[in-house]
Write a protein that binds this DNA or RNA. Structure first.
Lengths: 220, 220
DNA sequence: TTTAAAGTGTAACAGTTGTTACACTTACAA
DNA sequence: TTGTAAGTGTAACAACTGTTACACTTTAAA
């Protein structure tokens, strides 16, 4: 359900080895018990918060692509790092611990210092936010398409571009419907119509794009 | 139509005064004539491109909120700066000049140097991307709501939180429908039903929220 | 191998939204 | 003031998607 591995932040695991952070880093670490509301929507986000251990949930859009559902964040990962520098720097959602959690807090000005003195840190920070933006942009494009067949077309064309016209998905139909934000039977109906029209072929989780042009026509 | 004033980048106007950039900045400036395809979707984005003068259009989601429509970008503004540091650093859309345009190109490693040596530059870069992320997140939340009344409720509650229960919009119904990604008559129908149900009141562009609870119920 | 759970195909029907069309109102310039 | 364009309210109908239900297939555990 939650494949939130953010490889670019796994360096955080080596925190104690000072690969990313200098030894004189101003910071504080807080431990929160299970089922504890840590941040409330609208809370000021005046520092960088990094979940060091445990897990929390938010109601944000998820990395795995679920719509407004609950997102589960596993350590180690920063919490809403993009908002630290935004004009209205407030948490966009509630954050609640699922298990005991340890959270590292680094003040904003200290983050600024890290950015200028630790190129690796800056690189990771930038990359993480960039990937997040890219993810959001892609989701937005997908959601902007109104018809189910259009969403399918967008998704399959993307896959075909990346992996060739035959590829295997690791999502079942139910998860795919969830990803598109549509009902499962509606997705199935659209898929079978597209098979009928000889636009695609499906064998279990193996998808084959038969007619790219027709697929593109569905994007309108 | 396009209110793309990004105040945090207006400092670019003072480029020649070296407020943001050192005099030894490695860079190149290119001029493109009107109606010229500058970047193609999928092009490698290996440098920071800043539109110094003129205007371009993309098919991205717009700052003013239009769905997959054309976005018009006026100078000075960076072009897709978030993607420079992303894993798959390719332009997500085509970029075409609308008028003669002057584009400043700063190589990625030079951007890295700027980030570490010019705190003001870094600050602006971070803030711009953060605001962009916030904008995308908000749009995504809005689009995730499937019913028209739900979208209206989300939007009006946000406005009411910010300006109080009576406020004036600067969008007409057509623009609002466009913003929500729905048809204009459909929006009108939903609005008049909500007026009928005494949830809101509308007088021209002046909106009044009469019943927040009922409005919240529509979010589900 | 057997069995239960998960996943898929499909149909009937309800509900919502889009499309098109047109009358009416408002805003604004001549 | 008058005329025209822009904006709004509304209705009939079409199109699409969601809901619910159920049979069937596949998967994986016992």
């Amino acid at each position: 359900m939650t494949q939130n591995s953010n490889p670019e932040w796994t360096g955080l695991e080596h925190l104690k080895e000072d690969k990313l952070f200098p030894s004189d880093l101003k910071h504080s670490i807080k431990n929160y018990p299970k089922n504890n509301l840590i941040f409330r929507q609208g809370d000021l986000c005046d520092a960088l918060y990094i979940l060091m251990s445990g897990s929390v949930k938010t109601e944000m859009i998820t990395e795995s692509g679920n719509l407004l559902g609950i997102e589960i964040i596993n350590a180690p990962r920063p919490l809403a790092p993009a908002f630290l520098f935004s004009g209205n720097n407030r948490f966009p959602v509630d954050v609640t611990t699922l298990e005991d959690a340890e959270i590292l807090k680094i003040p904003k000005d200290e983050v600024m210092r890290l950015m200028t003195t630790q190129p690796d840190f800056m690189q990771q920070f930038l990359t993480h936010n960039a990937n997040r933006t890219q993810f959001l942009t892609n989701r937005l494009q997908l959601l902007s398409i109104k018809t189910i067949k259009g969403k399918i077309a967008h998704f399959l064309l993307e896959q075909a571009n990346e992996h060739g016209s035959t590829f295997t998905l690791n999502r079942n139909q139910t998860e795919l419907a969830d990803f598109f934000g549509v009902a499962r039977p509606s997705l199935a109906r659209s898929l079978s119509e597209m098979i009928q029209d000889e636009i695609i072929r499906i064998d279990r989780k193996k998808y084959t794009v038969l007619n790219k042009r027709k697929l593109r026509d569905l994007l309108v």
